[in-house]
């Protein structure tokens, strides 16, 4: 069964507009939080305009030229990541009657988009034919293989009360009780793994400073810009799904539902973006161990608790 969906042109326009607005918001939030933590004052004008100016600077900078790169792969990787972010966001319903795509297998589609992020990051590290990007690519391989299972399990628990893999049904099932209460472990697990999916802040291991920027060490110009935008877009998609899956989506005391959905997405976006300025980079070995020995058992426990609630 498929829920009500927008016409194709309207759907593409809406997803594009949401991604552009979301990416801009990530850039502004990141700058504002960085200034707050650093104890520096930034003017509102600087806060709002600097991200656009930096994007323009990348836009007019020449692309990188490494020795014998995989040129098609270098172009495809950022586009693939952006496309995956768009697909992931498209599965998230904004309101009871405002859905871009609401297939009966929305959960599977979202999870597939997340799984393919590993391909995009690996391709981005492989293509420049250089040491640090390649190193970053392998790191993300280890990172992604570790977070996939806890991510799926944390998400899967949200499907149990709804008895459906359709995202709109998962939201509808939270009319009386949000999953963040019903499954107290779910949202923290989802956020930790969501930061890893978006390789952001403490889990930005593939593009880390100890690899001189990792997969982005050789990136410049438009492809470098698209990569940064796509990573921020993935963060937006993860926040939006978190709002739908755990914070009751469009449900709220007043209408419109889409307003509640956007507000909850913004709340999670603030939490995700803030992590970059608050927590040091996590060691890859520790992350792998925590995922396999800690997060998977916790995610299973979360599913058991959720199932027991339904009995």
């Amino acid at each position: 069964m498929t829920g009500p969906s927008l016409p194709p042109v309207a759907a593409v326009t809406l997803v594009g507009a949401l991604l552009v607005a979301g990416v801009y918001l990530v850039a502004v939030l990141d700058r504002a939080m960085g200034a707050a933590v650093a104890g520096q004052r930034d003017s509102v004008r600087g806060l709002l305009l600097t991200p656009v100016r930096r994007a323009a600077a990348l836009l007019v900078t020449s692309p990188s030229g490494t020795e014998r790169p995989d040129a098609p792969g270098w172009v495809i990787a950022p586009a693939l990541l952006a496309g995956l972010a768009a697909v992931a966001l498209a599965t998230v319903p904004l309101g009871p009657n405002l859905m871009v795509a609401d297939p009966a297998t929305g959960f599977v589609l979202f999870s597939a988009a997340i799984a393919f992020v590993m391909i995009a990051v690996f391709l981005h590290g492989w293509s420049p034919n250089a040491v640090w990007p390649m190193h970053g690519a392998y790191r993300y391989g280890a990172q992604a293989l570790s977070f996939q299972i806890p991510f799926l399990l944390a998400m899967l628990a949200t499907a149990l009360p709804a008895e459906s893999l359709q995202i709109s049904e998962i939201v509808r099932a939270q009319q009386d009780l949000w999953n963040v209460v019903r499954q107290p472990l779910g949202l923290p697990l989802y956020l930790v793994v969501g930061v890893a999916v978006s390789f952001w802040g403490p889990l930005n291991l593939p593009d880390a400073a100890d690899l001189a920027g990792g997969t982005t060490a050789e990136a410049a110009g438009v492809t470098g810009l698209v990569w940064q935008l796509a990573r921020a877009a993935m963060l937006v998609a993860v926040a939006a799904m978190g709002a739908a899956g755990f914070l009751g989506g469009w449900w709220g005391p007043w209408r419109p539902g889409a307003g509640w959905m956007l507000a909850k997405t913004l709340l999670l976006l603030v939490v995700l973006v803030a992590s970059r300025h608050l927590f040091a980079r996590v060691r890859i070995e520790r992350f792998v161990v925590v995922c396999w020995a800690g997060l998977i058992p916790l995610a299973l426990l979360n599913i058991f608790i959720s199932a027991a609630w339904l009995l």
């Binding site: 933590v37 650093a38 520096q40 403490p202 400073a209 970059r276 300025h277 040091a280």
Partner: peptide, 16 residues
């Protein structure tokens, strides 16, 4: 060292 650990904003505060 904070900057090496990816905490640029905290590094700025400590440097000041």
């Amino acid at each position: 060292a904070l900057r090496v650990q990816g905490l640029d904003a905290q590094a700025q505060r400590v440097l000041a």
